[in-house]
Amino acid sequence: MKTRVTEVLGIRYPILQGGMQWVGKAELVSAVSNAGGLGVLTALTQPTPQSLAHEIARTRTLTDQPFGVNLTILPAINPPPYAEYLQAIIDSGVKIVETAGNSPKEFIGRMKDAGITIVHKCTSVRHALSAERNGVDMISIDGFECAGHPGEDDVPGLVLIPLACQALCVPVIASGGIADGRGMAAALALGAEGVNMGTRFLVTQEAPVHHNIKQALVGATERDTKLMFRTMRNTTRAWSNAVSQEVVATENRAGGCSFEDIRHLVAGQRGNQALQSGDVDGGVVAAGQVIGLIDDVPTCADLIERMVADCRQQLQQASRWAQA
């Protein structure tokens, strides 16, 4: 397949593995890149910039194909040393960075000077236009179906993707709600030049996550997610387990809810421990509505080859219908 996304990123197929906290590690990233997509390490999964540099080096021992690093910039009372993480990325010679969260404007100049291609993920056209003006090279547009933070506009991909493609000059990558070749074909038909997947890559053999978690997501339906932090205007979509259900119930109780009331439930390390131990009710597990389309745990190579074949078949079928 050939789009501006494959050409600029140097990959065979326009399929990106998005950044996933606790999951975007060398094993998964290298498997995606070796299969022809773009694997993406998650910078803040690593506890320090030095450990990120080590993980980048470890990834290079597992693949000689392009891969990127996700740097998600979020507001915090005590924010991580983002500039130091970025310096570790630059010093390690990584040439593709996926940014997300707040605007990466203050870091764009440094990345450009280092020859880095910047893929910025956002959830609205207005933010995408701002990022384009600031100099990012591609936009990953994230619909309301997605795992993690879908923003506060609640616009799903079928509307958001063509709006972004219509408004932007840089290549658009469709994110959220995509798990197979049908979704990929739809995204390309809507004008996107690539797709980004998180939840689908979470449920692969190489994902560094306990088998119990993967099997639980295989058995889930499109109705089995919860929107947490709605009352705080920091919406997060997660798999519907005991923890996310308790968070939502606490938010909706009479008298309201502060973050301190739920901090112990949503602590990042608690979620990480659940992913590693296989305790399906042990912590928050980010997952999109696309879990309803996931019914197996393939290797990344099998998944990507299957997606590409199905995508081509769906586009050919649609073309035949149009000719009729």
Rank of each mutant, 00 (worst) to 15 (best):
M1R: 10
T3M: 14
T3S: 15
I15H: 03
L16C: 05
V23T: 04
K25F: 10
K25D: 14
L28V: 00
S30C: 10
A31F: 02
N34T: 09
G37W: 05
L38C: 04
A43W: 08
A43H: 03
A43T: 01
Q46D: 15
P47F: 15
Q50C: 05
T59F: 03
R60H: 11
T63H: 06
D64M: 02
F67H: 02
G68L: 04
N70W: 06
L71M: 14
A76Q: 09
I77D: 14
E84D: 09
Q87C: 01
I89W: 15
D91Q: 13
G93E: 00
V94P: 12
I96N: 00
V97C: 06
V97I: 03
E98C: 09
E98K: 06
T99C: 09
N102G: 08
P104W: 14
P104V: 04
K105M: 13
R110S: 11
M111E: 10
G115C: 02
C122M: 04
V125T: 12
V125P: 10
R126D: 15
L129C: 13
R133S: 07
I139D: 01
D142I: 07
F144H: 10
E145D: 02
C146I: 14
G148D: 15
H149Q: 06
P150V: 11
P150Y: 00
E152W: 01
D153I: 10
V155Y: 14
P156E: 02
L160I: 04
L160Y: 02
L163P: 09
C165S: 12
L168G: 03
C169V: 11
V172L: 12
V172Y: 05
A179Y: 00
R182V: 07
R182Q: 11
E193R: 03
N196E: 14
T199P: 08
T199E: 10
R200V: 05
R200W: 13
E206T: 02
H210F: 13
H211E: 15
V218R: 10
R223M: 14
D224T: 00
D224Q: 04
T225W: 04
K226A: 13
M232Y: 15
A238P: 09
A238N: 13
A238Y: 13
V243K: 03
S244D: 03
T250M: 10
E251V: 00
C257W: 15
S258D: 07
F259Q: 06
H264N: 12
V266N: 01
G268L: 09
G268R: 09
R270E: 13
A274L: 03
A274N: 00
A274S: 06
D279I: 08
D281M: 02
G282I: 11
G282M: 11
G283Q: 05
G288F: 12
V290A: 09
P298M: 14
T299P: 05
D302I: 08
M307R: 08
M307I: 13
V308R: 05
V308G: 06
A309S: 04
D310I: 08
C311N: 09
S319P: 07
